[in-house]
């Protein structure tokens, strides 16, 4: 195949996909700045000719927007901290403490299966249980439920990292007289700190974007997360697009920010547990 043709084809594929990826994001972006009058243009303007910040201002001054952000932060942070903590411990345990090959696989599979208890199936019993205990519309309740996907993910990813971590280093330390705990906390953990950080960010992002649990289990402004809260306040009887677009941009921004932060680790974070299994 001629070199030129090959190059053309390659870039054709890449650019097509680039446009496909960026078009919705761009469209959302410009919609958030368009007034109703501009939105009514047919065909639509490709760039906001009369841009307005009204919808952003409206969202921020909307009495509850700050509270929604606060709720999202608390819940996502809570889940990320607890999940990473527990996941690291459990991951290490599965990686190092169960020596027989089979029980290792079984433990791994059980953790995978725990991930396959998706929100849709679990939300009904969770709703009834939380309602009965009185944990509906609370951060604590929502975090507890989020743990059900946070812990398996963190465990599995950390287990993958621990598997890769050469045990020779630990064994050397062990021979030198350190207990298992000491090696864990003084040697293994510090080296794997970046990986733990990655897991932390991932669980944070996952909780931030979570929709179904937050939709059902929280209904008041003091507990609703950002993704839900805004859509709930758009009434049936108004022109909703600009407001929703602005809300979408606002809720995606922190995620984007973290995304850029951990760009380098992204590959490892998403695929580590997957590939090494």
């Amino acid at each position: 195949m001629s070199k030129i043709i090959k190059k053309v084809l390659i870039y054709l594929v890449l650019i097509t996909y680039l446009i496909f990826t960026l078009l919705p994001l761009y469209w959302n972006f410009i919609t958030s700045f368009k007034t109703a009058v501009e939105l009514s243009n047919i065909p639509p303007t490709l760039f906001p000719l009369n841009p307005t910040l009204y919808f952003y201002i409206d969202l921020f001054y909307m009495r509850h927007f700050m509270e929604l952000i606060r709720n999202s932060v608390i819940v996502s942070l809570g889940n990320a901290i607890l999940s990473t903590l527990i996941g690291t411990i459990l991951g290490y345990g599965i990686s190092r403490m169960i020596t027989s090959e089979q029980s290792k696989s079984i433990a791994t599979i059980l953790v995978i299966l725990a991930r396959m208890f998706p929100p849709l199936i679990m939300v009904i019993p969770y709703y009834i249980i939380l309602n009965a205990i009185g944990l509906i519309n609370t951060w604590f309740g929502l975090i507890t439920v989020y743990l059900t996907f946070g812990i398996p993910f963190a465990t599995w990813t950390m287990k993958g990292f621990f598997d890769e971590f050469p045990s020779q280093i630990e064994e050397a330390a062990f021979i030198d007289g350190c207990s298992k705990f000491d090696t864990f906390f003084r040697i293994t953990l510090p080296i794997l700190l970046p990986s733990i950080f990655v897991v932390f960010i991932f669980t944070f992002l996952y909780s931030w974007n979570e929709f179904l649990y937050a939709l059902i289990l929280t209904t008041t402004y003091d507990s609703q997360t950002l993704t839900i809260g805004v859509f709930a306040t758009v009434s049936k009887w108004e022109i909703a697009w600009s407001k929703i677009a602005a809300a979408g941009i606002i809720s995606a921004t922190p995620v984007l920010f973290f995304f850029i932060l951990i760009r380098k680790y992204l590959a490892r974070g998403i695929t580590f547990g997957v590939i090494k299994g």
Binding site: Y17, L18, T21, L22, L23, P24, L25, W27, N28, T31, L39, S40, N41, I42, P43, P44, L46, L205, W208, N209, F211, T227, F231, W241, I244, A245, A247, G248, S251, A252, V255, L256, F258, F259, R263, L266, I270
Partner: peptide
């Protein structure tokens, strides 16, 4: 980096984004 962008958008937001995008008269 560009290709991985969609992963960070909340799915519900993506749904609404496409709804606007798909509109035969008010979308592109």
């Amino acid at each position: 980096t560009i290709f991985l962008l969609p992963l960070v958008i909340p799915p519900i937001v993506a749904g609404v984004m496409f709804k606007i995008l798909y509109h035969p008269s008010f979308g592109p």
